[in-house]
Every structure is written in structure tokens, then in C-alpha cells.
Write a protein that binds this DNA or RNA. Structure first.
Lengths: 212, 212
DNA sequence: TGTTTTACTGTCCTTCAGGCCAATAGTTTT
DNA sequence: AAAACTATTGGCCTGAAGGACAGTAAAACA
């Protein structure tokens, strides 16, 4: 089976690792560029588009993915990001992209990605998946139990502070109703973030306010 | 680099596909069984534990994973399930397992898994991943009419911003994914707060994440 | 009896959020 | 045509949040 690899990148020349991984790949600045126009009709042929993502091309990404999907329903799309970030990765994957990786990944990794996706898999970094799992276990699972699980990790005082913070109260307000200093509230919250792996009070609130 | 594969399974003999994929692998009924004790000190050596999961050994799984992680901080753990299911997969992955697959996966798949995880990836079935992504990206997807009521009061752009903010994203992150300035995000948010009568983004998040 | 955990407080500093006071340009409504 | 709304961005400023240092006293635990 013929598999065509097409890199869409603003770069003039493909990166070394790209060439190393796929010597026969084509590269073009835009999708639908004449030099890379794949033969659509060819039956059983697989096409992999490797989209090189710059920080400031979010919209381009969205449009390109959409166009590719409309034109080649079976094509696989991989996003190679100069500066990978979780939000973008999630977004891309939700659009149907089958892999999201660093643009400067070594050839070895690129080949691995290729193997995985041509076998129907989806490739993504470990950190991102961890995050995904965190988020969705909170949203999906036994919400009530999940929340208790979280609260169980906290000391009595931390629990009180966390609950108030999750309601949307400010540190000052919490301090008043618990008759402690604002500083102490901060201390309890910091330790709470640490224990629960929350980024800030908003994430804490989301953790403790999962719908039942 | 030496990579040791250790199968932990109640079976007397390894499955055919296991042997086919890893002829030199060891197998034992329990972790820490003398016959499979890996040399911990060996620098740069990778260890992959393949845990064979029976339906009724949930607790065993939890404990074994925990013990392995404490003993070999760098070890990779794969779960091979006789009867894979999403809940269990999620649970295992949330514990730090880097792959979850069917115990009777062909050797080819096992080798693919091995490749992926030794390169820092995580392996899982496509269906599960799709599900994960759905859950974590569709904040508004499964919300009640009440939330729609709120969102209906907003302009298109404000709605987009509000939803992202309610997920816990910072202004900068939102700006990035919508390809606008952080300043503009602030403008949309300010107007959103006004329209919905929200005090700040935390209250907004609570409004849009209300239990149905 | 040590050691660890909890509860509490301090200052300094950086970043972020959001309000206030603008402005421009396109679209919609009146 | 004029008025209102939408989308965008700028600068300035204040206050809150949270991390990076701290530190003390009591309780719990080993």
C-alpha cells in the first residue's frame, strides 16, 4: 500500500529529522499547493498530512484541518507544534487529528507516530494524556465519591477553607468566617493545591463542583 | 540499553503472543517473586512490567502498581486485561500506567506498545481516547437548559470566551486559541460578567458548570 | 522522647484579573 | 441617516492571588 507523507510548513526546507524519517515526503507551504497535490482517486492509498504549527497560526490550523478532512476523508492528520501546549493539543485532537507532537521530534519518534496512526491508533505525549485523564475522571466517574476522595486528602482546616474557596469566596471572606488571618487562608490553600494537584482556586472549584 | 520485560500473571505459562513478542521476558505470579527480581541498581536500564489483569483482581492491581512505583520509580507499567473496559482503563491510567490493552493482543501490537512507551508515549485504544477527548473538551455539551439560558445572553464571541474561561483557562490561553489579544479577551469577559451578573471568572465557571 | 504533622502568622515579590478611560471599524437596528 | 451593538485593541491602575523565603506552638505519632 502506498503511503504518501505530506508536510505542510512555512519552512523552505524540511527539518533534518523529517527527511531522515521520510526521505520521499513532500513539503509545501500550503495545503493544496500544486507540488504536493496527492492523487485522490488512488484506491487504498493512505495519506498522512504533517501540519507544522507556529504559535500564531491557530486559525490556519483549524481551516487547514477542516479543508483536508473535506477533501480527503481518509487522510490522517498529524500536528507538529513548535511550542506544544496542552490546550492546543486537546483542541487539535478534538478536531480529529490523530497525533500531536513536537515539531523537532527525532526521526525515530516520527516513525513511531507513523506506525501507530497507520494502525488506527492515536499518538500523544504522556503529560497530555495524564492531564486528559485527570480532567475526565473528574467529569465522568463517581462524582460524589470523587469529591469525597479529594476532600479526604485534606486536613480538617484545609477542607473548610477549600470548600469556601470552591464556593467562590475570596481569601479575605474566608478569613473572616473562619476567624483567621488572610495569610493563614493562603497557607491552607497553597497546601490544598499541592495535595489535590489543583492549579489554582478555579480548578479547585471545578474539582469540588462536579455535577452529580 | 537493556530493557527487561516482566510479565506478572497468574498463568503458569506465558501466552503465545507474549513469547512471540518478547522471547526473553520473564513471567511470575507475583511482583517481587524471586525469579523475576530485576537488578534495580543497573543504571539506564528500563523495566517494563506487564500486569495481567483478571476481572476479580482490582485490588491486586492497585496494590501491585503502587508497590512497583515505589520500588522502581522509572519502571513502565502496562496492564493487559482479559476483559478490557473503559472504567478500568481510565482508573489504571490515572494511576500512572502507560498502556492498557487486551491481554490477547497479537505480538505485533505488543511490540508497538513497547515502542511507544519506551519513547515516553502512552498507549491506549482509539475508542477510549476519543471518549476521553469528548469528555474533556465538551464542557457545554452535556449541560442543562439553564446553562444555555445563560449563554444565550452572550454574543458569539463572548460565548466562546466564556466557555473557555469556565474551563479554567487563563486570559492568555484563551487569547491564544481564539487568535486575539489578551486585552480583547478581557473586554469580552468584562462584558460577559456584566451580562450574566457574575462577579468574576470563578463565579462564571460555577454558573456554567452548575449541576443539571 | 524525638519526629512529623497541623495550625497559624509574617514579609516580599510577581503575575494576573478586572475596572476605567479611551479609540476604530464593521454590522444591525431604528 | 443616525443610533446602537459587536469585535477589536491600547494604556493605566488597583487589588487579589499565589509562590518564595520565613518562623512558632501545639498536637499526634512512632
Amino acid at each position: 500500500m502506498l503511503v504518501q507523507d505530506i508536510f505542510i510548513s512555512p519552512l523552505e526546507n524540511a527539518l533534518v529529522s523529517w527527511v531522515e524519517a521520510f526521505p520521499k515526503a513532500k513539503i509545501a507551504p500550503l495545503f493544496n499547493h500544486p507540488t504536493v497535490k496527492p492523487k485522490k482517486a488512488e484506491k487504498g492509498s493512505d495519506i498522512v498530512f504533517w501540519l507544522h504549527m507556529n504559535e500564531d497560526r491557530q486559525e490556519w490550523l483549524t481551516n487547514t484541518i477542516s479543508t483536508i478532512q473535506q477533501t480527503y476523508s481518509v487522510a490522517k492528520i498529524v500536528v507538529l507544534a513548535n511550542a506544544p501546549n496542552q490546550a492546543e493539543a486537546l483542541y487539535a485532537l478534538s478536531l480529529g487529528v490523530v497525533a500531536y507532537a513536537h515539531a523537532y521530534s527525532p526521526a525515530k519518534v516520527l516513525l513511531e507516530i507513523k506506525t501507530v496512526i497507520t494502525n488506527g491508533g492515536v499518538w500523544m505525549g504522556q503529560d497530555l494524556l495524564k492531564r486528559l485523564i485527570e480532567v475526565s475522571t473528574n467529569l465522568a466517574g463517581n462524582q460524589a465519591a470523587q469529591v469525597d476522595q479529594h476532600l479526604k486528602l485534606l486536613t480538617k482546616r484545609e477542607k473548610q477553607v477549600a470548600i469556601e474557596a470552591a464556593k467562590g469566596l475570596s481569601n479575605k471572606e474566608i478569613a473572616r468566617i473562619l476567624t483567621i488571618t488572610e495569610r493563614t487562608v493562603k497557607a491552607h490553600l497553597s497546601s490544598t493545591f499541592e495535595r489535590l494537584g489543583a492549579k489554582d482556586r478555579l480548578h479547585l472549584a471545578l474539582m469540588l463542583n462536579k455535577k452529580a
